[in-house]
Amino acid sequence: MRAGTGLLWLCLFGYALGAQAAGTASIPADPLDSSRWRYIVAEHFRDARLMFDERVQVRAPDAVEDGRATPVFVRISGLDDVRRIRVLADAVAPGAVLDYFPDSGAAARDLSLGFGLRLAQATPLRAAVLTGDGVWHIGGRWIDAQGGGCAAPSMTLPESAGAGKGLAPGIEARAWPRPAGYQRLKFRIQAPASARESWPAITQITISDSAGRLRARLVPGKTLDPTAVFTLDIASREPLHIDVRDARGQRYERGVGSAARALP
C-alpha cells in the first residue's frame, strides 16, 4: 500500500517536473528572484506572454508591521487597453490575492488600486496586468516578514471562525475628483466589531455608474483584508454604485455621490 502510494507520487512528481521543464524555456528570469516563480508562472501564466514592466508599480511597506493589515498600492501608468489586473503573493499561493477587472471600454492609461493584505510571512508581491494584446505586464516588490524598530510585535488575526452572526455590514465610501475627468473612489466594508471574526468572505465587488455601466469589478482572494480601505481610480466623474456580495449570498449596496459635486 505504502509502496504503491509512493510510486504514484513519484510518477506525479516526474510528470510535474516534465511539465515544468516544457514551460521553462520561455519563462523570463524573475527580477525578484523568488524560488516560487516558475510555479507562479505554471499556475497563472502558462503559455502566456509575459514581460516585467516598469509601468506597473507595486508599493507596500518594506516589511509587515501589523499582520492584520499591510497596505498595498498598485499604480499602472501608460499602459493601453488594460483588461485585468491580477495581484499575487508568491508565499500565499495558490490563488490570487485579488483580481481587478477595470472598465475595459475606457481608454484607461492610468489605473490605481489600493487595498490591505493579511500577511504574516515574507513574500514577493506582484501585480500582473493583462492588456488587450494578450501580454501580461508584471511589476512587484518583496515584503519582508517583520518590521524592525521601536515597535510592537506583529499580530495576525486567526482564520475566520466560520459561523456567522448574520449582522449586515455597511459600506463607507467617498469620491474625490481627480485630473483628466477621473475620480478616486475609496470605500470600506464595515462589519460590527463583534462580527469581524466570523464574517463570510467577500466574493465580488462591482462598481457601476448611474447609467448602469460596469466601471470596475473586484474578486478578492483569501489573504485580502476585507475590512481595509479599497482605493480605485475611475475614468468618470458620474455618481457611482457599489455592490458587494459575500459567500453566504448576501448583497450590500450603496451609492456614492458625484465627485464633480464634491469639488469645493
Binding site: D66, P71, G147, E172, A173, K186, A228
Partner: peptide, 21 residues
C-alpha cells in the same frame, strides 16, 4: 524613509477611515 513608512502604516488608517462616511 523606513520610519516614516512605519508611521503611515500605524497612524494613517484611522485618519483615512475618518474621511469615509
Amino acid at each position: 524613509p523606513a520610519e516614516y513608512r512605519r508611521s503611515v502604516t500605524y497612524l494613517y488608517p484611522a485618519l483615512e477611515g475618518a474621511t469615509l462616511k
